[in-house]
Design a binder for these strands. Structure first.
Lengths: 354, 354
DNA sequence: CACTATTTCAAAACCGTTTTTATTGACGAC
DNA sequence: GTCGTCAATAAAAACGGTTTTGAAATAGTG
């Protein structure tokens, strides 16, 4: 049974145009060494047959696939990471402009992630990777550096000898402190994250710098550390508010922690945004729905994805990765969980005593 | 400059094992016609060199890429569709089990989507497509059917001669009405979606059937149509509540519309779940965070993605697409936006008049 | 022991491109 | 005229696999 092939190849084009296939190829890749006449004839044949080169054959010869890869942490089957979906969308849109595509895979553990990257590299299905959710020491980045495979990380790691795109955590927290200081707060607490995380250290540094800039003495009692959960945020908030001179503002390492803190504040009978100001970080959509809507700092995941993709393309095309390191500021999303202090710390303490 | 190639090919393996490359290939593809001795030798060489076949070369000969494609509607750059990210996650996990990958692209319009599918087909970058967010008459599906290219749709269309996975929209809305009727509601409003969407028609049909089953006369004034946005949902809700005999329950085509409606209800000074019951559809995570948490119908996007991927693989491997059509029920996620009516429609009207 | 069937593997052909090399004809210079 | 030179294109050689073909070695049979 002679199954008729329904795909049109370069040979078909060459035959129709009456030239050698090499000539067709050169025309399509703009070598510019063909006469106008044959070029027109070839382009016409291409048009008529609706020819498009086979990516596999092309890649075999050229060694490129025009495809970028990303390995996502597998969701728990419940709710997918909202950040990632926006990030993906940004990547895809950037790629559309350059006629490349995105290969998406998931991994359910660090080891699995490394294995998947390795498989994709060896089977040459992608030209480079975008690595998200980086850790201080990241095994995926180790692998990619060791293999000399192009990639861009979203977020720095301890080692920084590669291309990355990151949000300026330090700057954001400096601005957070500046913002509440401008509202009139002088007792400003910090609910920080675990210091094994790179970003937690950066954010704390920004907090301290902000205090210094505002001329407020750094009080270690106001600087706490908690896990990145609501319950942990709630507990840390309670601790700070029990101080003899409680803070009138809380700057929180993430929105999740801030939401936990808000619950604790409300439970103590205080008004968020009036008695106690709360500032988050992440710009999670849920922050807009809670009561009162959370003032926070936000990085556009969409913009990050688009930019990271563009940077990766540059790296693949030979740009030195060290020339593709970008630090961008996070923007303040002003909602309603902040405001001028209505009470002094002493008054706050008294109202809590009741 | 003789750039040393750092990729290991089948020739390297063959040389190391002292056999012809054809033999290596047959061993790796389990032809079972090689002696145990040479097979071991070859596998050992493969192991030692860390050899993995080039996907491009392999595909060139076999005509398959082991990659599925999906073309997403491009987000607006603001918030990506939470449904899609979960759906993607489901697909990716299913693919992981079968050593295939997923190619993701975006399209910003119907025409663009068709063009992207066409490009991917012709450049043979994927073996098949998963088509989401189907419309009554879907140009993408037209294209794929015409090209005879394998695909699975998430959602039916007018034409149903292909593989699909769909939630039983009609049934869900029938159950929604049954649910609120059981709570004691008799004036039940419907905030429907644009009727160009197939699912909107199905959901409306379920609503009407539910009324019939409950023995409630269908009042066209209670059945409205809105776009799938919060603002549109809010407006539709206001319109219905201004009726002389306002509804005490609103069944909404999507969670987004329901959330908009809730905002409008609150703004009118009414208590959600007491004065007016609101039922959504989609099971969006955000629904759990709003106040009060939204009662809704949920389809697991994750499960849908995983199942659709599996179905597509079957179709690619030759199963008749007509044998891969599945209708699954949506489940009621009971939260707090519903309850027995506290007021009659007349009382509701009066309290609004104030 | 001659003869055939079976197993095992080497060699060659092929997939659809890109890239390199060769060939052809036209043209100008000597 | 003959000889390069140059432009344009044809022809051939990769690229890295899979699949087909066929030959040699081995086993089985009368």
């Amino acid at each position: 049974m002679a199954r008729t092939k329904n795909t049109v190849t370069i040979d078909d084009v060459a035959r129709l145009a009456g030239v050698a296939k090499g000539t067709v190829s050169r025309v399509l890749n703009n070598y510019g060494d063909t006469s106008a006449k044959t070029r027109d004839r070839i382009l016409q044949a291409v048009e008529r047959l609706g020819y498009q080169p086979s990516s596999a054959a092309r890649k075999l010869k050229r060694g490129r696939v025009d495809t970028l890869g990303i390995v996502l942490p597998a969701g728990d089957g419940e709710h997918a990471d909202p950040f990632l979906s926006e990030f993906l969308d940004g990547i895809a849109q950037a790629l559309d402009l350059s006629d490349r595509d995105l290969l998406v895979t998931t991994a359910h553990s660090d080891e699995h992630a490394v294995a998947v990257h390795d498989r994709l590299i060896r089977s040459r299905k992608v030209d480079g990777f975008i690595v998200t959710r980086t850790q201080g020491d990241d095994p995926r980045i180790e692998l990619l550096l060791q293999r000399g495979f192009p990639f861009v990380a979203h977020g720095r790691t301890r080692n920084t000898g590669f291309a990355w795109y990151d949000v300026d955590n330090e700057r954001a927290f400096l601005e957070a402190v500046r913002h509440v200081a401008a509202l009139g707060h002088r007792r400003i607490g910090f609910l920080g994250g675990p210091t094994r995380m790179n970003f937690a250290i950066q954010r704390r540094a920004g907090y301290r710098k902000g205090l210094e800039e505002a001329g407020i003495a750094h009080d270690p009692a106001l600087e706490s550390t908690c896990e990145l959960s609501e319950s942990s945020g709630a507990e840390a908030a309670r601790t700070l508010l029990r101080l003899d001179e409680p803070p009138t503002a809380l700057v929180c390492v993430t929105d999740t922690v801030a939401i936990g803190a808000m619950g604790a504040i409300r439970a103590l009978g205080l008004a968020i945004g009036r008695d106690v100001t709360v500032i988050g970080y992440d710009g999670l959509p849920v922050g807009a729905y809670i009561d009162p809507p959370l003032t926070t700092f936000s990085q556009s995941a969409h913009a990050a994805g688009a930019r990271a993709a563009r940077m990766l393309i540059d790296v693949i095309e030979g740009v030195d990765p060290l020339e593709r390191q970008e630090l961008v500021p996070a923007d303040l999303v002003k909602r309603s969980s902040d405001g001028p202090p209505q009470k002094t710390p002493q008054e706050l303490k008294e109202s809590l005593a009741k």
